[in-house]
């Protein structure tokens, strides 16, 4: 089975990138939230449910340096969300056969 890594770099309250990504992503794929996309990892937001709903079939990650840069390091993230650094980002790209950026 083909494995796709989806990159989302926009806040879910600013753009529909995460929504569209989740609409087109298949079970078994992964989603990495980077840049302003990391706001999507926060709990208690109006958009958190969209990720929570899919977290059993899609693996979600956030880019840690982007979380810390935005003062979110101490805030709770959606349960089951993995945290990676840039080297972890590289590993995710190599582990999936295709990377799709939701620009």
């Amino acid at each position: 089975m083909s494995k796709v890594l989806h990159l989302v770099n926009k806040s879910p309250s600013e753009r529909n990138a995460l929504d569209s990504c989740l609409r087109l992503a298949q079970a078994g794929h992964s989603v990495l939230l980077i840049e302003d996309g990391v706001y999507g990892a926060l709990v208690n937001t109006t958009t958190a449910g969209n990720i929570a709903q899919r977290i059993k079939e899609i693996k979600f990650y956030v880019l840690g340096p982007d979380v810390d840069a935005r003062g979110l390091g101490e805030m709770p993230l959606i349960e089951g969300m993995g945290i990676v650094d840039y080297e972890g980002f590289v590993d995710l790209v190599t582990e999936h056969h295709l990377t799709q950026s939701w620009l």
Binding site: S2, V4, R23, L24, A25, Q26, H29, H97, L98, T99, Q100, S101, W102, L103
Partner: peptide
Amino acid sequence: TTAALREVMAQQDVVISS
């Protein structure tokens, strides 16, 4: 449909977004 597009997208080797 979304379901059909989902299949087509996952079969690509390179996806260029702009």
